[in-house]
């Protein structure tokens, strides 16, 4: 039995649902049929470099970067706690991290609305104990919060899966040779966990960069990210060419950042990781 025969269904699947749509995006990005017939054009590509879109792309990069950093700062210690051998409640905590992902993502984001609104639960509690109402929603803070909340598990799990696989004898050896715990972490554990960190960063950064639901809901439609602009081109203005060109740019951005972090990752030794 050759492996090839097994891979056949996957090949069909991938070509229909991944390759063909990609080609379609490229096709729409470089053609124009407003005059009735399809002609090659670079207009869409030129249009995406207007200051308007560049500003939105900059904002998207900035906000998804912040969200990724926050996810990392919160996620790494969580993964370490999970991976530590003497942590008895490990499986319970793992389930608690994964459990929200069983619920629909839209539903979870909507429930943040009822917490953060001016008349939401948090503010009602604050005003009932005599504090001033604070505006938690309709701003950058809420959007980043939504991204962190939704994508944190994607940071924790890959780091965790690399951390548990680290050979404990390596750590023991470091300790035997006189390294204190800070040194063990800095010189042994962290370098070995880099592949997990890279997967974690990619898996939080990519969806954060392209999201449009989180920004729409939690900013009340006030903060526009590149995902929102793309969605607008497809559903409202019907300018599929511009929408495809912008999607293409987004893919290039993600691709470049992946090369960048993977390159950085290759320099450190380690096994595992998802990419």
């Amino acid at each position: 039995m050759s492996k090839r025969r097994f891979s056949f269904p996957y090949l069909i699947w991938m070509s229909i649902f991944i390759v063909v749509p990609l080609l379609l995006i490229i096709f729409y990005a470089f053609t124009d049929n407003s005059s009735g017939k399809t002609v090659f054009t670079l207009e869409h590509l030129k249009a995406i470099f207007e200051p308007l879109y560049l500003k939105v792309i900059g904002r998207s990069l900035y906000m998804s970067l912040i969200a990724t950093v926050v996810c990392f700062i919160l996620g790494y210690p969580a993964a370490m706690i999970l991976a530590s051998k003497d942590f008895a409640k490990k499986s319970t905590m793992l389930i608690l991290i994964v459990l929200p992902m069983w619920m629909n993502f839209l539903l979870r984001t909507y429930s943040w609305l009822s917490l953060l609104e001016n008349e939401g639960l948090i503010n009602r509690f604050l005003t009932s104990i005599g504090f001033e109402q604070v505006q938690l929603m309709y701003n950058n803070f809420a959007v980043v919060l939504g991204m962190v909340y939704n994508f944190l598990p994607f940071m924790i799990l890959p780091i965790y899966s690399v951390l548990v696989k680290i050979d404990k004898s390596v750590i023991e050896a470091a300790k035997d040779l006189g390294a204190n715990s800070a040194k063990v972490f800095g010189r042994v554990i962290f370098p070995l966990s880099i592949p997990g960190v890279i997967s974690g960063i990619t898996m939080t950064f990519m969806p954060a960069l392209s999201t449009f639901v989180i920004s729409r809901l939690l900013s009340g439609g006030k903060i526009t990210l590149i995902g929102n602009i793309i969605e607008q081109q497809f559903t409202i203005t019907g300018d599929w060419g511009l929408g495809s060109a912008l999607s293409l740019l987004l893919m290039v951005l993600i691709f470049v950042s992946m090369i960048f972090i993977n390159k950085y990752g290759d320099e450190s030794v380690g096994a595992g990781g998802l990419l």
Partner: peptide
């Protein structure tokens, strides 16, 4: 402006948002 909304605006106004 607090937000640009379509469908949600009714509920938000009823709540006093």
């Amino acid at each position: 402006v607090l937000g640009y909304l379509v469908d949600e605006v009714k509920d938000k106004m009823v709540q006093g948002e």
